[in-house]
Design a protein around this nucleic acid. Structure first.
Length: 821
RNA sequence: GCCGAAGUGGCGGAAUUGGUAGACGCCCAGGACUUAAAAUCCUGUGUUCAGCAAUGAACGUGCGGGUUCGAUUCCCGCCUUCGGCACCA
């Protein structure tokens, strides 16, 4: 019989479906394993090879763990809210639900053709009313915990289109010639900063790549320092005020020669003197117009203006000028800084530009008037007053001493700051979960009294137009019959903001444990049974946001007793991107996209699965290479011919030519088999699929070369291969007489004694250079090894006439004869 | 600029508690089978030099140093590529 992947793939996919082969089993007598993919946004362009790689990897793990006797949870779903469907709706009027459904169908079909073992009875879709209900329910839990609040937050506002833009849209709109400004708008915000310390600290407990942890740490951006209060100098023209700054270098306080406030700082108006007011107002107006992007782009030249006001440096008691400049951000620390130009690059640049004094307070190897000196190890100088002296102290001691002094005087306080900001959680869009809040009328008839929805889910109404309302509100603001209503508590207007796409993905891994539960987002029993996700695989593009947001929600749920672990994903593995054949990122515009459907067409699922893993290490970024696929295709052909030997002989095509025999295998083959099992087993556990496949190829090459068709060897090979190429494995398993699915066969075990060689090749070096080899029995004594090494033909001439000054022996490996002369 | 990862044959990659560099696969060349082709099977395949040849020697893991009997692996200094962050005081 000839190997025809189309026939056998369809046959076995139907078989698995009919027999519920991969329906999840919950058996508390067995260990559990929860292996999860980052679920996709079902885009119109279909599955790409990046999906293929990640999903195949988790599928191999899921199947492998099943062979190993685990109860495996391996689910799939759809992160189906999102901008593309909404933009398509704006263009064509097609309801996003329709587009989404179509895309889901096509995605699901492709996934099924790959022979993935997803338990489709647990399929979820973030846009389903049943799912939206629980997303909203969790939001209300956050609200009850005081972790959701309303604030005025600047957003990207397109002036011409009267629309709020997502960050990723800004460039596109600017290119079209529109004006994009920062405009404060009413937003729902989640207080993720309340969890900053735990989000940082608990990273230690996770089995994640160090690089991803580091990215999260940087994003959270913890820094220790202190807040220092500067008294504003009394001046008949200004009001009495204090300015608090945050600094990580209080040890340089004596060198603070000026202060800078962010242009948005609330004290700017009261500090500014009349003579400076016009300049200050002009500067503030200008920076308000600039988008964040522009501020960042213009980082070359520092700008700023003097307010006319002065503050007193608490250490030197000297008055120092107060400036405003947009290099100081209102959103970090206190929105104000003390500037130490001698020892901070930004301050130095600013001081040089505006001729502000630069005072050296750390012993510097060069003149700080000429060049800035940033250092933590240099001792303090010029840093003493009547009360306190830091001179001679380095960072740590100086820090402690000055902070103690400031605290004693009541003008300073230790403080930890984070770069992490609270999470702006509302979008002015249609295609998202409505935020389930209502505003009831107050005594004046204004809708100001905020209360949560009592009936969930709150679903989206149908709309005629998907464009934003033009007022900065979402299209929902135009749907009066949905927007306004009355209940026992009075007349209300609904919240028009919707949730961001992140919302659904913050907890989907929990819903998979109990996907159809109508009474709870997950039952406590099932939550506990499946516990943490044991392995989570996805692209590194989600290294920060999705993973941080999900961890945040999870911790909140943990705190209110709804989940049993404080972290959701125990082990995270990031697959590397697959590039086009040209080594560039795959993109439609480059025309280097490899589509999964065409691969399936040409080579079938087993080859596609095998090849995408054989390409290289899972975590590595690697280019696609269409030619190499022939190799794995041939490999499967060879496997096929181990069972169906007739093709090899060119004889007629009949089923009776199954060549599996019960003749014993040779010792060499048996050894090769045990080594292969060991290697494949280890590699599967460590997600090193490329070398696992290589090991199986080697084994098949040995079997082929020796014309060995031993039943045990082939059965073990098929079980090892089945996680990778399940269809052909099932077909051959059946062909050699098994009635049950290979998926239920236990993974072969190896005999450690049989993986060891009796003889080894010893390398012989002369002064570190390889000059020959010889065969020796394992465990041969060092003296014997040396004696043998000296007799090796190719070695002798390098020893001729030389004195051996040293013998180095690595047992069972190598002899190195060090010679002189 | 800062943080992180990585640089190995014509190509994808393998091998690191320091011990025969190049497993496996692609490409390529030669052979077997075939009327022929495809498929399949076998052999060879890092570079350079010497030789008719078997073979031998030198070089070789981004670059330059170092430690060591021995370095792809460890240390120091660079270069390049990719990813992330980007005035965070």
């Amino acid at each position: 019989m000839k190997y025809s992947y189309t026939d056998i793939e369809q046959k076995w996919q139907a078989y698995w479906q009919q027999h519920d082969t991969f329906t999840t089993i919950e058996d508390s007598a067995k260990p559990k394993y929860y292996v999860l993919d980052m679920f996709p946004y079902p885009s119109g362009s279909g599955l790409h090879v990046g999906h293929l790689e990640g999903y195949t990897a988790t599928d191999v793990v899921a199947r492998y763990k099943r062979h190993k006797g685990f109860c495996v949870l391996h689910p799939m779903g759809w992160d189906a809210f999102g901008l593309p469907a909404e933009q398509y709706a704006i263009k064509t009027g097609t309801h996003p639900r329709i587009t989404t459904e179509q895309n889901v169908q096509s995605f699901k079909q492709s996934l099924q053709r790959l022979g993935l073992t997803y338990d489709w009875s647990r399929e979820i879709n973030t846009t389903d009313p049943d799912y939206v209900k629980w997303t909203q329910w969790i939001f209300l839990k956050l609200y009850e915990q005081g972790l959701a609040y309303v604030a005025e937050v600047p957003v990207n506002w397109c002036v011409e289109q009267k629309t709020v833009l997502a960050n990723e849209e800004v460039d596109e709109y600017l290119e079209k010639g529109f004006t994009v400004v920062r405009k404060p708008l009413r937003q729902w915000v989640l207080k993720i900063t309340a969890y900053a310390e735990r989000l940082l600290h608990d990273l230690e407990t996770l089995d994640w790549g160090e690089n991803i942890k580091e990215m999260q740490r940087n994003w959270i951006g913890r820094s220790e320092g202190c807040n220092i209060t500067f008294e504003v100098q009394r001046n008949p023209l200004t009001t009495q005020a204090n300015i608090t700054v945050f600094t990580t270098r209080p040890d340089t306080l004596f060198g603070a020669t000026y202060m800078v406030l962010s242009p948005e700082h609330p004290l700017v108006a009261s500090i500014t003197t009349d003579t400076q007011r016009a300049a200050v107002d002009a500067y503030r107006a200008e920076s308000a117009k600039k988008s964040d992007l522009e501020r960042a782009e213009l980082q070359k030249e520092k700008t700023g203006v003097f307010t006319g006001g002065y503050a007193i440096n608490p250490a030197t008691r000297q008055p120092i000028p107060i400036w405003i400049a947009d290099y100081v951000l209102m959103s970090y620390g206190t929105g104000a800084i003390m500037a130490v130009p001698a020892h901070d690059e930004r301050d130095w640049e600013f001081a040089k530009k505006f001729n502000l004094p630069i005072v050296e307070v750390l012993q510097s190897p060069h003149d700080v008037q000429e060049q800035v000196f940033v250092n933590k190890d240099a001792p303090c100088v010029n840093s003493a007053n009547a009360d306190v002296s830091l001179n001679g102290l380095t960072f740590k001691d100086a820090f402690e001493k000055i902070v103690a002094w400031l605290e004693a005087k009541g003008v300073g306080q230790r403080k930890v700051n984070y770069k992490l900001r609270d999470w702006v959680f509302s979008r002015q869009r249609y295609w998202g979960e409505p935020i389930p809040m209502k505003y009831y009328q107050d005594a004046q008839g204004n809708y100001t009294i905020l209360k949560p929805e009592t009936t969930l889910p709150l679903l989206l109404p149908d709309v005629e137009k998907y464009e934003p309302s033009g007022t900065g509100e979402s299209p929902l603001a135009n749907i009066d019959h949905w927007l306004y209503g009355e209940d026992a508590q009075g007349k209300f207007r609904r919240e028009t903001n919707t949730m961001p796409q992140w919302a659904g993905s913050c907890w989907y891994y929990l819903r998979f444990k109990d996907a159809k539960n109508p009474n709870a987002f997950v039952s406590p029993e099932r939550e506990r049974y499946w516990g943490q996700v044991d392995l989570y695989i996805g692209g590194a593009e989600h290294a920060v946001l999705h993973l941080l947001y999900a961890r945040f929600w999870h911790k909140v749920l943990y705190d209110i007793g709804l989940v049993s672990h404080h972290e959701p994903f125990q082990k995270l593995f990031n697959q590397g991107m697959i590039l086009g054949e040209d080594g560039e990122k795959m993109s439609k515009s480059r025309g280097n996209v490899v589509s999964v459907d065409s691969l399936l067409e040409t080579y079938g699922a087993d080859v596609a699965r095998l090849y995408v893993l054989f390409l290289g290490p899972l975590e590595q970024v690697k280019p696609w290479n269409t030619k190499g696929i022939e190799g794995v295709s041939r490999f499967l052909g060879r496997v096929w011919r181990l069972v169906y030997t007739n093709l090899h002989d060119g004889k007629p095509d009949t089923d009776s030519t199954i060549g599996v025999t019960d003749e014993p295998m040779s010792a060499a083959i048996e050894k090769a088999m045990h080594k292969t099992i060991q290697k494949v087993d280890e590699d599967c556990q460590n997600l090193r699929f490329n070398t696992a496949i290589a090991a199986m190829m080697e084994f098949v090459n040995v079997l082929t070369k020796e014309n060995c068709h031993n039943r045990t060897a082939i059965e073990h090979l098929l079980v090892m291969l089945s996680p990778f190429a399940p269809h052909i494995a099932e077909e051959l398993w059946q062909a050699i007489g098994h009635g049950d699915s290979i998926a239920n066969a236990p993974f072969p075990t190896f005999d450690a004694a049989l993986t060891k060689d009796e003889t080894v090749t010893i390398a012989v070096q002369v002064s570190g250079k390889l000059r020959g080899t010889f065969e020796a029995t394992v465990g041969m004594q060092n003296d014997d090894l040396i004696a043998r090494a000296k007799e090796v033909d190719s070695v002798v001439k390098f020893l001729d006439g030389k004195e051996i000054v040293k013998h180095i022996v690595v047992p069972n490996k190598l002899v190195n004869l060090v010679v002189k002369g």
